[in-house]
């Protein structure tokens, strides 16, 4: 939903970032307002996953230039946990398995960290169980997954559902979903997308990072951005995704070549 007067939630200006001294992001500009769903598309290596990790504060990435403002204040100054507490969420492409740490307890500690920031009281084990059982419905997940270790032995689809469950519990302001569709069969994709759609409100925003159009068949973006060589090359509506699907990414390379010469 595009409303020009909606609050500016995330404002990325000329963002440059490196990993292991290798420049990956080379001047990303992107503004996201409340109520909007954005999709960033691009080939492997275009920098789209790096963008998501830089926003979440992954320690392996260094920002070398540019700025990111979250609801008007500097985001890049904050530790990863502070970013999460104030409402930034990263859905991982490869959710990490943590043997020995119970999923239920992990979800409770995370939820309470976010609640503390919002001035809400902590949930004890019993109160939390009620909340989480309700939220499980968003992703049609079995309560048995709560008793297991975080993501341990989960299938690809179960891991992604667990990500969306976390999103449902943390109620982020800006959710960045990194290749949430990868490795999902069509049923799992529908469930995951259904969860994302349910959680979208006029007050929050979603940034989908994806390689394929098929996620965008089930989640309709307001804006589609095409990323290549660490920059956003083109921005359009959902029809841009269809065009990409039809023409492939080759024209992006040609456009990039023109740009590089210039």
């Amino acid at each position: 939903m595009i409303r020009p007067d909606a609050d500016l939630l995330l404002d990325i200006v000329d963002l440059h970032a490196t990993v292991a001294d290798q420049p990956i992001l080379k001047g990303v500009n992107l503004s996201i307002r409340a109520g909007e769903i954005h999709a960033v598309m691009g080939r492997n290596g275009s920098g789209k996953s790096t963008l998501s990790k830089v926003l979440a504060g992954h320690p392996a990435y260094s920002v070398t230039a540019g700025s990111v403002r979250y609801r008007g204040s500097d985001l890049l100054d904050l530790d990863p946990e502070q970013r999460a507490r104030i409402g930034l969420f990263l859905g991982f492409q490869y959710p990490v398995e943590i043997p020995g740490v119970s999923n239920l307890e992990f979800l409770r500690v995370a939820t309470n960290a976010r609640r503390g920031e919002l001035g809400k009281e902590e949930l004890d084990t019993f109160a939390f169980e009620d909340v989480v059982r309700d939220r499980l419905k968003v992703v049609q997940m079995d309560a048995a997954f709560l008793e297991r270790s975080v993501n341990e032995g989960f299938s690809g689809g179960e891991k992604k559902r667990n990500e969306i469950l976390q999103m449902a519990l943390l109620e982020p302001v800006v959710a960045i979903l990194d290749e949430t569709d990868s490795g999902l069969d069509i049923d799992a994709l529908r469930i995951v997308a259904g969860g994302v759609n349910q959680l979208a409100t006029p007050d929050n925003a979603t940034l989908l990072i994806t390689h394929y159009q098929r996620l965008l068949d089930v989640i309709t973006p307001d804006f589609v951005h095409v990323m290549a060589a660490g920059r956003i090359l083109r921005t359009g509506g959902k029809e841009l995704a269809l065009e990409l699907e039809e023409r492939g990414y080759d024209w992006v390379d040609q456009e990039l070549a023109v740009l590089e010469v210039a």
Partner: peptide, 26 residues
């Protein structure tokens, strides 16, 4: 693992304790 927990709002000290405990609990 540490980053995953931190990205969910869990501070580094708590995350480290959860991980050390998880390491044993396995």
């Amino acid at each position: 693992q540490l980053f995953y927990l931190q990205s969910r709002g869990i501070d580094a000290a708590t995350a480290s304790r959860l991980l050390r405990r998880g390491f044993c609990q396995e």
